[in-house]
């Protein structure tokens, strides 16, 4: 299978008044055509900023270095004007909050059709027709009427469907969804995930699903990447990581999630707090919270290296068995 996105050594930093915050460090991963990659990690671990950087959407004080190649197009460092030829067409993004992510002063159809006018050169009429068809496709009842509505006239779930329709109009190669269901009711969440699965399948779109929710990962993703303190600490298939986590942090995430399939009986929240990006500990960033740490972890940072054959990787020196119940901390 071919890769649609290759990220190497991606770094994101933000300039503050007198200091700098490194939100993402040396991030590298590949995204294959049509697959679903889940990106998980605690709040502040750099999930959103990694992908905003790839989309060229960092805040003004943010700067990205490294490489994110989509085929032979290098996205990092590309001028916004050039990037606009790819954003919304080949690579699209959906955001967490559907209530504020649509423009309150424009009709739904305007916000959809402009994508097709811009990227496909459609006439406005044709673009609106196509947009209505896409609204139908994402399961919006009475799409003609909804197309003429303003966002505030739609429910949260409906708005997120509009966002999905908007992102998929040009059948992009890559769809990045940043916690797209967090703001929605649980019942709506499940429908929305089915919709993601169905549409990305049909369109052959690779999906990056950023989420806190391991239930979402289990139901949707092929592979996952666990992030901690701005770095990837473990990557592999969902089965590999769920049934045989090799990084203590992955184990911690799994044991802190209610999941009947998981090995842990009771919920074990990870002790300690997420790290402050400004004062990351020496050595492995996770070491203050790790039950398996030893001397080396305190002085040297473990690189993200292959585990056995195949594609899985982890950034941890500890090679013994990880068992949740044995955790001493």
């Amino acid at each position: 299978m071919t890769d649609v996105l290759n990220v190497r050594d991606l770094n994101v930093s933000f300039a503050l008044h007198e200091s700098e915050v490194h939100a993402v460090r040396e991030l590298g991963f590949d995204l294959r055509q049509g697959e679903t990659l889940a990106v998980v990690g605690e709040s502040g671990s750099g999930k959103s900023q990694s992908f905003l950087a790839i989309m060229g959407l960092l805040a003004k004080n943010g700067r990205a270095t490294g490489s994110a190649r989509m085929g032979d197009v290098e996205l990092v460092g590309m001028a916004p004007g050039k990037l606009d030829a790819y954003r919304g067409k080949d690579i699209a993004m959906i955001f967490q909050d559907p209530m504020t992510s649509l423009n309150p002063s424009l009709k739904v159809k305007t916000q959809l059709a402009e994508v097709l006018v811009k990227h496909q050169g459609y006439s406005l009429d044709k673009a609106i027709k196509e947009s209505i068809a896409m609204l139908d496709r994402v399961g919006i009842p009475a799409p003609e009427r909804r197309a003429n509505a303003y966002p505030h006239e739609l429910s949260g779930g409906m708005r997120q469907r509009v966002m999905i329709a908007m992102a998929l109009l040009c059948r992009p190669k890559i769809l990045i969804a940043d916690e797209p269901t967090t703001a929605l009711d649980v019942t709506v969440q499940a429908q929305m995930l089915d919709l993601f699965k169905e549409l990305t399948n049909d369109f052959g779109t690779a999906l990056v699903m950023i989420t806190h929710n391991l239930g979402v990962v289990a139901g949707l993703a092929d592979r996952m990447m666990v992030m901690y303190g701005g770095r990837a600490v473990e990557t592999g298939t969902v089965d590999e990581l769920f049934y045989d986590p090799r990084h203590p942090y992955t184990l911690g995430l799994l044991s802190s999630t209610p999941n009947p399939e998981s090995r842990a009986r009771r919920l074990n929240p990870i002790s300690g707090l997420p790290p402050s990006l400004e004062h990351l500990p020496e050595g492995c960033s996770f070491n203050p919270r790790c039950a398996f740490r030893f001397d080396r972890c305190l002085v040297e940072r473990p690189p993200l290296e292959p585990v056995g054959e195949g594609q899985r990787r982890k950034a941890c020196f500890y090679e013994g068995p990880l068992v949740a119940e044995e955790r001493s901390a």
Binding site: A92, N103, K118, M166
Partner: peptide, 26 residues
Amino acid sequence: GSNYVRTAKAKGLGERLVLSRHAIKP
């Protein structure tokens, strides 16, 4: 700085359209 302007940028509309269609009215 709003989310909907970020959405408009993510759609690749270009600075001019983002400003004239998405930002000025609100």
